[in-house]
């Protein structure tokens, strides 16, 4: 009887996600333009990627992205969260402000950074440049484009982590904190020996999610640079998207998607184990 209750969810999920995902894995071994009959090419798509400079660039960029997001926003989030704990007063105010960027549509955030900050004509960097501070638009330079995109995404992302860490910090048992206080621990000792170990599960979960998300990053790159200039900011998801819809190389796109998933799968296993331990209880 109760089996009927889960049928709508499972049906929708299987039709929209599971079946197309399996088709993608099959398509990775075919050459297909989206219209004619697919041609089986074995490992052809993967072999082509192996010698494709753009693919390696994209993969490297995803790894750089993972490195950036595993350190900077997690560091900023932890710093701000602990400082909100010290400040005590105004923590609601800080939380609301830091959370704001995450509720703004990524397409809008990307355009604000592009036009109002980076642009040499209408942006703040352009203004500073006119005052003589030799600044160029990072999005148009091969060496900086990826970082220019990352800064906008970091701005949008770190506050979410801060709020999560703050919530976790407040759940560390008060007795432990008091005990450390009685022993005369300074704040930094308290942090190191009580608070950080106390929220370690949250930090590791967020790191696992960061690894998964770093291989999915799409919006900011697609809107700000389309992977350019000269593919310098290409990531795997934009490469797959352009291959499928602009080059009509759906087989290649599928192969890239399978590779994205392979990178995520290890992190996903850890994620499921952590979540499952909590759910099974």
């Amino acid at each position: 009887m109760h089996r009927l209750y889960v049928i709508p969810t499972i049906f929708i999920n299987v039709v929209i996600i599971a079946i197309p995902a399996i088709l993608t894995m099959i398509l990775a071994f075919y050459r297909w333009d989206g219209m004619s009959t697919p041609v089986f090419v074995g490992l052809g798509n993967f072999e082509a990627l192996w010698t494709d400079r753009v693919f390696w660039r994209a993969l490297t960029n995803n790894l750089i992205w993972t490195g950036l997001f595993l350190t900077i926003p997690i560091g900023m989030g932890l710093l701000a969260a602990t400082m909100m704990l010290i400040a005590r007063r105004g923590s609601t105010f800080f939380q609301v402000i830091y959370f704001l960027p995450i509720i703004i549509a990524t397409a809008i955030t990307a355009r604000v950074w592009q036009g109002m900050i980076y642009s040499p004509i209408t942006g703040v960097l352009g203004l500073l440049d006119r005052y003589g501070l030799e600044l160029t638009n990072p999005l148009t330079q091969v060496n900086t484009a990826l970082y220019g995109v990352a800064v906008a995404d970091l701005w949008h992302w770190w506050g979410f982590l801060c709020v999560i860490f703050f919530a976790a910090l407040r759940q560390v048992p008060q007795e432990q904190v008091e005990a450390a206080r009685v022993e005369g621990a300074t704040f930094f000792q308290l942090m190191r020996y009580v608070l950080l170990p106390g929220i370690m599960p949250t930090i590791s979960l967020m790191m696992i999610m960061t690894i998964i998300w770093s291989f999915l990053v799409f919006d900011f790159v697609f809107i700000l640079t389309q992977g350019g200039p000269a593919f310098s900011s290409e990531v795997l998801s934009t490469l797959a998207y352009r291959s499928a819809f602009y080059d009509l190389a759906v087989g290649k796109a599928a192969a890239v998607s399978v590779i994205i998933s392979l990178f995520g799968i290890v992190a996903t296993i850890f994620y499921i184990r952590i979540q499952a331990a909590e759910i099974v209880e």
């Binding site: 969810t9 999920n13 079946i19 398509l27 998964i212 998801s237 998933s261 994620y271």
Partner: peptide
């Protein structure tokens, strides 16, 4: 348990893994 694990797994699936067949379908 199976249903829960299945749902957890799909939360981390990249959109690109199902986007292209879904679009052409």
């Amino acid at each position: 348990k199976v249903v829960t694990f299945y749902l957890l797994a799909t939360t981390t699936a990249p959109i690109q893994l199902f986007l292209f067949p879904l679009y052409f379908g």
